[in-house]
Design a protein around this nucleic acid. Sequence first.
DNA 1: CTGAAAGCGCTTACAG
DNA 2: CTGAAAGCGCTTACAG
Lengths: 352, 352
Amino acid sequence: MRNNNRARPTLRDVAKACGVAPSTVSNALADKAVVKPETKALIRKIAHELGYRVSPLASGLRTGKTRSIAMIVSDITNPFHGEVVRGAEDALIERDYHLYIANTDGSRGRQSQYIQHFIDRQVDGVILMSYASNDEDIQALVRAHVPTVLLVRRQDTVEQDFSGIENEHSVHSVLEFLTSLGHQRIGFIGGPASSSGARERLNAYRSFMQKHAGHADPALEESGEYSIDSGHQSTYRLLRQNPRPTAVLVSEDMTAYGVLMAASEMGIKVPEELSIVGWDDLFASRLPQINLTTMRVPKRQLGANAAKLLLQRMANPSADVETLLVRPALVVRSTTGRAPQEEQAVNAASQE
Amino acid sequence: MRNNNRARPTLRDVAKACGVAPSTVSNALADKAVVKPETKALIRKIAHELGYRVSPLASGLRTGKTRSIAMIVSDITNPFHGEVVRGAEDALIERDYHLYIANTDGSRGRQSQYIQHFIDRQVDGVILMSYASNDEDIQALVRAHVPTVLLVRRQDTVEQDFSGIENEHSVHSVLEFLTSLGHQRIGFIGGPASSSGARERLNAYRSFMQKHAGHADPALEESGEYSIDSGHQSTYRLLRQNPRPTAVLVSEDMTAYGVLMAASEMGIKVPEELSIVGWDDLFASRLPQINLTTMRVPKRQLGANAAKLLLQRMANPSADVETLLVRPALVVRSTTGRAPQEEQAVNAASQE
DNA sequence: CTGAAAGCGCTTACAG
DNA sequence: CTGAAAGCGCTTACAG
């Protein structure tokens, strides 16, 4: 039954064609010093002619290595994730690893399924960029001895290599920028509480407000998913207040678009009556119609850092856990401006 | 050396624990009728207790089936692709297949590499949504007997299952909409010539203009990639004309954003002086600041159709090739309006 | 430097 | 209904 309907040639076929043993072919193709150069050359030539390719299934079964990496993201639809993936992919491909991207759609069930699947498949490593991550998933990876790095969202309960964003400093610098424009009542629309990044940004917001205004007003805090709809809803709640905030820091551009949308519906002028700062700098933010002031996150770098950490971990499983942080830069566009005069803000609010 | 440091249990381990032969465990787990129900129950219980999972590497090596599908996309950063992926993924997961997403970044080299990789890996099928596809890649898939479906971009030279968009009818209906608003000089900004969809839309545009205006003016045609920058550049070329077009149909929303950007820079009012229609309906198009009139493509459906075709093909490799087309719907928002009076258009153009 | 042998973890005829 | 055996395609000690 072997080699029916021109199936792929095997090591045996190559060996036969070369008149040597399969093990010699294997050693030659792996470029082991043990094989004589002439023999190597011959074997390589014939292997190529025959169109031989080693079966990763077979060699993976034998060696336990598959030269593949899995990257699990929670929303492949969000361009932020796409950029980060690219950063990781470039770094990995260069080292001859292949990247399998899996999308969980924010579903914990699907995420566990994928993780189990990749463990079964014996990928050489996993990069996890998912807000749906939970302890069991990560424990499963640890138990299976699969090198894992966490991306953007860190898990507090377990020590793991981590590629993330410098949140505290960045939040403080945006808020300083806003206060320098005269803003006092600054709202905050954060991400899901399950995200470590979202928590860090919220805490940084609070500590800044604490120091600057003497207290952080919980009425100025909103949170939700990273989506337009979520930002839209948060805004309606946030701007119903009197006096209402004159500026709002939003934890993600996608969410900020929802804020822009709601402000437009409510007839609130941006930036005259409301300044908005986003986070990430997605492609839409630079369109003149949007022109969102935002924190530009070096997305590719974030992915490249994750790849770097993973490669290190794979090379040295017992090394100390490491964290790599990327620092965003403020890009001032036209959704921010000087705070309106106190009276104006109050008037505007009471007109509602 | 077996089972050192709590490695995963094997079929043998389960068999030993149950006091049966490995083959019986295999048959039981595969739910073959040949195994007695009680034996099955016992085996299942113990297998579960031991945390046994069949090794896809081993079973793949033996059977040639891996229960995995690869989907190759050219730009994971474009939200259009993300949505299509989701549609395919949902359909596939439901049937217990896992989806590996690979991103080629438009690079032919990387695409060939991934395709070869997936062939080596013996995935059960491939969905190709890439503008970088070329004959050799597809031939490689065919030679390796890997069921393949083409998504959005079809290959003329080879018969393949195809999930795509109804372009001709859709283009005609948009153009009818524009002429009903009084537009005569309608420009067209298309996609890359390597994309079958782009070619179909261009041809549909030409045939419509032919019929409606007596001829299609090549000066009104532009093309480029599906990107903001590309749309931006095309617009500068297109609107330099005198008289300039009063409307433009753009082959993709991303490109249309670039048109919007350029129009804004050039001080051309939309829709008073220029009507713009996009294609796809990406998330940004519904933001009030953008509010782009566009053809909404049922993206998930597109992906689901591809999955359906692939599953069919896998079940029946010798069936006739099939094509599934999805029909977009016009969503009228605020970038389209009545054509300006002839004089106005001329005046505006001469003011430049 | 080369080859024969064992084994990775499964599945599938086949014999009992 | 159950078990012993062969083999998927590789790699890696080991003997020569």
